[in-house]
Structures are given as structure tokens and as C-alpha cells.
Amino acid sequence: MTAKRFFIYGSLSEGMIHFSKIQNFVESLAFARIKATAYRLKVGFPALTKGGSDLVPGQLMELKGSELLKTLLDEFYGFNPLDPEQSLYSKEEVDVYVEGSSEPVKAYTYFLNPLKLPVNAALIPGGDWKKSIEDQPALTSKLTEKQMTYIQRLGRSTGREIVPIDLALYRELMNLELIVDKGRRLALSKLGQEVFRHLA
């Protein structure tokens, strides 16, 4: 197995909610930056778009290159190698500036398709998404165990299945704009689907 280099940021970074998905593949990691533009999504995690002059922080990871890992990362970012133009993210090779090194190295990273950038995404000045999360934690970290459990159950249910809910929890999730009431059944809102993706 050969190691593959990826620039990782956001929820897959070490210490973040999804690092456990890739930690068994990590051979080494180092603090690094790339030139990009960072946005804060409503769920609280960042998305990067190509271009811009901000040096956005993240980690350069040497990952064991397996087909399983490539598929896992592509699926996580909604990248379809057979239809890259319609994908949520693109996968690109970029210059990565590693802390303590003067020369950039090449690595792959995922950029959000600019056409899919939500209107409520907020530009992060300077690109420091870590500070943005420290100042205002991601929505997933503010949810109660009961709220998370319900979102996960609703996210995994089939369209016709009714997932029971009590009135207090219903109000909480409606106020957070995580569910929509379709009359006879509840469904996750777009934000709810994004939260589910970050909890799954």
C-alpha cells in the first residue's frame, strides 16, 4: 500500500467529530495551510472554495492509499469521479505549505463546487475556520443526546416510516430548523440533513 497525501480540514481534522472515520489510515500528519477561500456553513463546519489568497489552516496527512479510503473520502465530500461537474465537491491537487518548511508539497484536497455554495454560508475572514469554531461552536456540539438520537433515527428512516416524537422535542427541533412537518410525517430539513451527515 502506498501512502497518499491529502490536505484535510474541518470535521475530518484531528480532534474533530469525523477524525475517527480516517484515523486508522493516517500514517503521519503535520499542520499546514493552502491558498483558498473559507466559508462557514450553517451547520458550523467550513467549506473551502478554490481561489483566493487566504492561507487556510488544516493538516497534511499521509494516508494509506486504499480503494476503500478513496471511496470513503469521495462519498463523505459528495464527489462523484464519473460526474465531477455535478458533484458537491471537486477533488484537486494543490500546493500545501507545511509549517516549518519553505517549499510547498503537492497533495489532494476537496473544494466545494461554487454553484453549490449555500446562500447562508458566511465568508470566514482570513480563512481561519478553527477560530470561527472556537468562537462559535458547530451546531452538532450544541445538541442534546435526545436531539441527536432523534435526528439519526429520522435520517436513517425510510420516507414512509413515522418516527414518533414528543411535543417538547418537536418544538426544539422546529426552532433549530432541523425538521420540517409534512403533515402526516416529519422529515429532516436541509440543515437537518447536513447535521445528520455530520453525526452519521
Results as ranks from 00 to 15, higher is better:
residue 87 S to Y: 11
residue 168 A to H: 10
residue 40 R to N: 08
residue 162 I to W: 02
residue 130 K to F: 09
residue 13 S to C: 15
residue 110 Y to N: 12
residue 200 A to V: 11
residue 112 L to A: 02
residue 176 L to Q: 04
residue 3 A to N: 08
residue 23 Q to S: 12
residue 107 A to I: 11
residue 81 P to C: 06
residue 59 Q to T: 06
residue 104 P to W: 09
residue 131 K to R: 15
residue 163 V to L: 09
residue 180 V to N: 07
residue 187 A to T: 04
residue 47 A to T: 07
residue 58 G to F: 08
residue 172 E to D: 13
residue 69 L to K: 02
residue 183 G to E: 02
residue 94 V to F: 08
residue 22 I to R: 14
residue 148 M to V: 10
residue 137 P to G: 03
residue 185 R to V: 02
residue 161 E to H: 14
residue 45 F to I: 04
residue 132 S to F: 05
residue 134 E to C: 09
residue 57 P to C: 12
residue 17 I to V: 15
residue 132 S to G: 05
residue 143 L to E: 01
residue 140 T to Y: 00
residue 193 Q to S: 10
residue 96 V to Y: 07
residue 78 G to D: 04
residue 84 P to W: 00
residue 198 H to V: 01
residue 125 P to D: 06
residue 87 S to W: 13
residue 56 V to T: 14
residue 152 Q to V: 14
residue 96 V to A: 09
residue 158 T to F: 15
residue 1 M to I: 13
residue 24 N to G: 13
residue 80 N to E: 09
residue 89 Y to F: 15
residue 72 L to S: 06
residue 138 A to C: 08
residue 61 M to G: 03
residue 123 L to E: 09
residue 190 K to F: 11
residue 20 S to F: 14
residue 97 Y to I: 04
residue 152 Q to E: 08
residue 69 L to R: 04
residue 175 N to F: 11
residue 33 R to N: 10
residue 58 G to H: 05
residue 188 L to A: 01
residue 189 S to D: 04
residue 133 I to L: 15
residue 107 A to K: 03
residue 196 F to D: 00
residue 1 M to N: 09
residue 12 L to I: 11
residue 87 S to F: 09
residue 175 N to R: 12
residue 149 T to Y: 01
residue 184 R to M: 10
residue 38 A to P: 05
residue 36 A to T: 09
residue 129 W to I: 03
residue 134 E to Y: 13
residue 57 P to R: 10
residue 114 P to F: 05
residue 90 S to C: 06
residue 65 G to S: 14
residue 141 S to I: 08
residue 151 I to K: 00
residue 16 M to S: 13
residue 173 L to V: 04
residue 177 E to D: 08
residue 66 S to Y: 01
residue 29 L to E: 10
residue 19 F to Q: 06
residue 190 K to P: 05
residue 4 K to A: 12
residue 75 E to T: 13
residue 97 Y to R: 04
residue 189 S to W: 09
residue 129 W to E: 01
residue 43 V to Q: 13
residue 183 G to L: 06
residue 50 K to Y: 14
residue 56 V to D: 05
residue 140 T to K: 00
residue 6 F to H: 12
residue 49 T to Y: 07
residue 3 A to T: 06
residue 98 V to Q: 06
residue 30 A to I: 05
residue 99 E to F: 11
residue 11 S to M: 07
residue 90 S to V: 06
residue 61 M to Y: 03
residue 21 K to S: 13
residue 177 E to G: 04
residue 190 K to I: 06
residue 102 S to W: 07
residue 15 G to Y: 03
residue 173 L to H: 00
residue 76 F to P: 04
residue 6 F to G: 07
residue 101 S to C: 12
residue 140 T to A: 09
residue 27 E to W: 08
residue 18 H to T: 04
residue 62 E to P: 03
residue 197 R to H: 15
residue 192 G to D: 02
residue 150 Y to V: 00
residue 5 R to N: 13
residue 169 L to S: 03
residue 127 G to P: 04
residue 9 Y to T: 02
residue 132 S to Y: 03
residue 153 R to C: 08
residue 172 E to C: 02
residue 145 E to N: 05
residue 174 M to K: 15
residue 17 I to A: 12
residue 43 V to E: 14
residue 46 P to V: 15
residue 178 L to H: 01
residue 161 E to P: 04
